[in-house]
Amino acid sequence: MRIACLFVCCLFVSCSVAQVPSVPQLQRVSFVDTKEAICEYAFVQGNWQFVHSVSFVMDSGYGATLVGVTVLQGKKLKTVLMGVEGFVLFEAEQEGSGRVIVRRAMPPFDKTGFARGLMRDVQTLFVEPEYAERTLAENTEGELICRYTADNNQVTDVVMAQQGWNRINLYDTQGMLQQSITALNYKEVTGENIPERIQLTTSGTQGYTLKLQLLSAEKL
């Protein structure tokens, strides 16, 4: 009887041991590769055409809804702002060198500095920043951050949150927050994660908030 119990116990124990998962094999990756993968996740790769509804509110309370088209082609950025009915209010292109060519600018989008500001916004939203140094770290909340530091010491932090949103904080050369972009509700389009909602807030005396809702995303 004791032998039978011992046999049953051994069988039970051996069966139990067989059900415990073993330590999985891990593939060694270099830290640099991991950092690149994590940081680039926040930005689309390749050529795209995005169409967003763009609701903007100035600090003065003035606001409207427009349709914004962004075309990313290699190093070129093209952007169009049009009324919901299709009339083009603003059209510009930024070359790889950073030179901005304005093709059309109707009032109030013909103000000095508007084109450069808008192209900067578009670039911040969609293009990984140029950097002299890129570091991956955690903030005090435990969120993963890619920090891009440019030659002129301008810092861009990409906060990689876990709940399906990212945030990009752009600081000026004095270290003051200049722009904050929150991207929410990511969905997969042609193998890439594209945010369905984006909110961009710019600080300063002429601050404004842009809310973008994705209408279409097409890989070119």
Binding site: N47, V51, V69, Q73, V80, M82, G86, E91, L220
Partner: peptide
């Protein structure tokens, strides 16, 4: 059906 064509667009926009 509205079709917006521009040289800058890679695809026309349909409404």
């Amino acid at each position: 059906v509205q079709e917006k064509n521009m040289a800058i667009l890679a695809r026309p926009l349909l409404s």
